[in-house]
Design a protein around this nucleic acid. Structure first.
Ligand SMILES: NC(=O)c1ccc[n+]([C@@H]2O[C@H](COP(=O)([O-])OP(=O)(O)OC[C@H]3O[C@@H](n4cnc5c(N)ncnc54)[C@H](O)[C@@H]3O)[C@@H](O)[C@H]2O)c1
Ligand SMILES: NC(=O)c1ccc[n+]([C@@H]2O[C@H](COP(=O)([O-])OP(=O)(O)OC[C@H]3O[C@@H](n4cnc5c(N)ncnc54)[C@H](O)[C@@H]3O)[C@@H](O)[C@H]2O)c1
Lengths: 216, 216
DNA sequence: CAAGCATTGTGAACTGCGTAACGACATTAA
DNA sequence: TTAATGTCGTTACGCAGTTCACAATGCTTG
């Protein structure tokens, strides 16, 4: 199986974003060690990650910024754009919608759902909000295969079940629970609470280290 | 050095949250395989993660829910509470502040900063917003050692520099860039854009697998 | 009371990821 | 032309993290 690791895909996403900024600054070429420094990685890792992409740089010029960016896009993106549904238009859901509105042409939040009738019907950022009852119909009509879950934790599992039942194959879950899904469904987790507690723990460790280092 | 891995700390945070819910339901005891199922892990991994915590379960009753939760808290949390600063009160920053307000007594966002004067001075959720100019003073006064960065990407590095200059040892960074920080500072990254693209990629892969599996 | 049983804690084996190392190659300079 | 330089692509290695496997433990039951 020539399967690409999740870590590599994550870094490719980051490399592409950096290349995009470089392209805006009219930078033509870049070496692996330069890209690595900007991405917080090593030169060897960058070269390794780029292997499956199939783009080759020149030993003297490095990588062509524009070409590499396009190659990564060709490798990662859907050929014809991808529509995403967002479920839960609370504080976090609205922040996400606002952020992604009009940003990526190839990966767009096209519909949103909530079960709060006061939100239903309104359009945020040109994106209509439907009631959760209409999940099945709207997802089928728009041929959506991926969804973002931004509902409270105690509703997340049932929302996921519904989505999968409607033919969803991939989820980005912000609710702080582990979802039980069938084997064919991919789930990406963002657990802000856990990240917060991790950061708090390692912050304390960093302080301890600094103190003991000072005294030593 | 008997250093604990980041992965383990992340899962301990999740275990504790699950235990909290179990405690509310008056569940007294739980086995490693039950906790593993709820956390999306394996029984062996749960037991391994619990080793550094130092709490021992009984081979017949399993782990005491309340006791294990307390042991994890004693292991992970600061003995006397921890204050966190939030920089950037945009859409994401406000969502985070709203979510954490009054939720965790031991880990609290106590001050916020923005450079938009229209936000400064107001209090969101009983938490005053200061102008970034006052960073040094306010952080010193409140003895803050950790901060959340929720400003646009092109300001994130300079904000981080300022924070570190004020004595911050740990960061939770939502800006989609890699921060350059001195070795004594810990950084935890949440890159929503990358997670989104990862999910999109593996969603497509899941669809392909399902199709080829169907035809095979 | 002893045998049986399910679970715990942990050493040992395994897996996968990141790093190091090295041959290949294009350019530059002598 | 030829030697020197610096980077690329790829293979090989080492380590961290996960899973396996089993002795130790203490309840249950006949
Ligand atoms: N905001 C944060 O910083 C933060 C931090 C950690 C975790 N989270 C998690 O992210 C998720 C969303 O957080 P939030 O702050 O936006 O919460 P929120 O309460 O502001 O929003 C939740 C939204 O989901 C809607 N909803 C509830 N049940 C629903 C259902 N069954 N179907 C459709 N919509 C439903 C509600 O009407 C509401 O609009 C939660 O699971 C939360 O635990 C958020
Ligand atoms: N909202 C999302 O879903 C999302 C997704 C991906 C990435 N992000 C990242 O999260 C960060 C915040 O996103 P957002 O949607 O809240 O953006 P936003 O534009 O809504 O908020 C940014 C806030 O930061 C403040 N700010 C700007 N420069 C500042 C400075 N130098 N010092 C202090 N405050 C400053 C602004 O006044 C504003 O209030 C950004 O880096 C963004 O790239 C957000």
């Amino acid at each position: 199986m020539n399967s690409i690791s999740e870590k590599t895909i994550g870094r490719l996403s980051l490399y592409r974003r950096i290349l995009g900024e470089l392209a805006q600054k009219q930078t033509q070429h870049i070496y692996s060690h330069e890209l690595a420094a900007m991405a917080g990685a090593t030169a060897a890792q960058v070269r390794r990650d780029l292997m499956p992409v199939g783009y080759s740089g020149s030993p003297t010029k490095g990588y062509g910024v524009r070409d590499l960016m396009d190659s990564i896009s060709k490798f990662m993106d859907a050929p014809c754009g991808q529509s995403v549904a967002l479920v839960g238009l609370g504080n976090l859901g609205r922040a996400i919608l606002t952020y992604f509105a009009g940003r990526r042409p190839n990966l767009t939040i096209t519909v949103t759902f909530d079960n709060d009738r006061s939100r239903v019907g309104k359009a945020f950022h040109g994106c209509r909000c439907y009631h959760t009852e209409e999940l099945q119909k709207v997802i089928a009509q728009n041929n959506i295969r991926m969804a973002i879950i931004a509902v409270p934790a105690d509703h997340a599992q049932s929302v996921a079940d519904n989505l999968i039942n409607c033919g969803i194959y991939g989820l980005l879950n912000f609710a702080p629970i582990s979802l039980r899904v069938p084997g064919h469904v991919y789930v990406e987790y963002i657990d802000i609470t856990t990240s917060m507690e991790k950061a708090a723990y390692f912050t304390r460790r960093a302080i301890e280290r600094a103190k003991s280092g000072k005294s030593a």
